[in-house]
Amino acid sequence: MKPLAITALLLREYERNGLLLGLLVVVPLIFITLAIYTTEDIPISFLVRDGGEQVTVSKPMPDVHGAIMVPITAAFLASLVGLFTMVGAARNDARLIVAGASSVTVTSARLALIVVLTTVVTLVSVGVALIDFRPAVLWSFVTANVLVGVTYALIGVLAALLVGRLGGAFLMFTLPMIDIGIYQDPMLVSGEQAFWMKLLPGFGGTRLLLDAGFTPGFDEWTALAFALAWLLALTGVVIFVLSSVRHK
């Protein structure tokens, strides 16, 4: 069996799960819409990069809150997708291997499944935000959110492999909230962020998102480099840990 065929097979399991599909739409809808409609309609100033310079812009707070809720939602949901898809893999992948699929094929299919589900979750979140908010550069806004989503999905995968189901759930309920919900949120951290906040996994994607959401053009090359560095590092660590686990 090829990885794509296995991914399609695994996806069918989700197609039949009406509750999960409903929640994939309802959770972003409630999170993001509530954020926009409960926020005071006053301007807020924050730092962005525009034309190669760091400048202060002032935007309506509901727009800023709506925009920042997209990566928060994507990170929350994607990290749980990564965690529990990998927890399920421990039970089911052995059967696929017994049925003749190679370990590499099954692992690739599982990771592809996580990327597909994460992209769906992220696109639903972006779609909900677009009802009330128009980012300045849509493709870059979507890219930023997918980067955050996939990064947190890989963190969820690592949590599943290293601390298991319950420990992973504890972590995935708190890490996205602390990283993106607090330390990357321009409504809560005003001015220049501390250096250590820039080392967190959500930094690059969130800066890209603020650039795409509120300034024309693309300026955040450093942020993109940070986001890609996290993504590559996590992919490497996940592959290393997975191969160690599979060879035990």
């Binding site: 799960n17 309802v26 949901l77 749980l80 997708v81 898809t85 309920f173």
Partner: peptide, 15 residues
């Protein structure tokens, strides 16, 4: 399901 349960808990908590 682990995933569905987690989504519901997050939803209740955010509300």
């Amino acid at each position: 399901g682990d995933l569905e349960g987690s989504f519901v808990i997050i939803l209740i908590f955010m509300l």
